[in-house]
């Protein structure tokens, strides 16, 4: 079973390699709506998938965060991508698989995954 001793060992290993994380204007923010509406429609696995992928692929210029109700509850789970100097992209009705496509094509490839954007929805 995991113990606090193991945590100490990890700390000692990490001690000299903790870099200061860039939180500046060059960083891309990925925001997941995590209010009741988002959580009920499946935002937690989307958030987990995004943050795992960003860590695994070592995307140091991307910061994944959460927010409250974005006000479009019927389109949840919603993921917003804010790149510096570009217009915000709003992805709707997300799931972990779609989120992975966004990571590969948008965050890494730089191309918006148009088919999942709010603009593609027939808004009534």
């Amino acid at each position: 079973m995991k113990s606090l001793e193991e945590l100490k060992a990890i700390r000692d290993k990490m001690k000299n390699q903790v870099g200061i994380r860039a939180e500046d204007e060059h960083q891309t923010r990925v925001v997941v709506g995590m209010a009741t509406c988002g959580i009920a429609s499946g935002a937690r696995p989307v958030l987990t998938a995004l943050s795992n992928a960003v860590q695994e692929k070592d995307l140091s210029n991307v910061m994944v965060t959460q927010t409250g109700c974005i006000g479009l509850c019927q389109y949840e789970p919603i993921v917003e991508v804010m790149e510096p100097g570009k217009e915000k992209v709003t992805y709707v009705k997300m799931n972990p698989d779609k989120a992975m496509e966004v990571v590969e094509q948008h965050l890494i490839g730089g191309k918006v995954v148009v088919k999942y954007t709010l603009a593609q929805e027939d808004i009534k």
Binding site: M1, K2, E6, L7, I10, R11, R21, Q55
Partner: peptide, 27 residues
């Protein structure tokens, strides 16, 4: 308790994040 051991090392660094996951699962 984690904070006391880790000091400035953030919980969301990959190693610590993985440790917390495993700590929860295994316990």
């Amino acid at each position: 308790e984690f904070r006391q051991i880790l000091g400035d090392i953030p919980f969301d660094s990959p190693e610590i994040s993985a440790y917390i996951s495993e700590y929860l699962e295994e316990n």
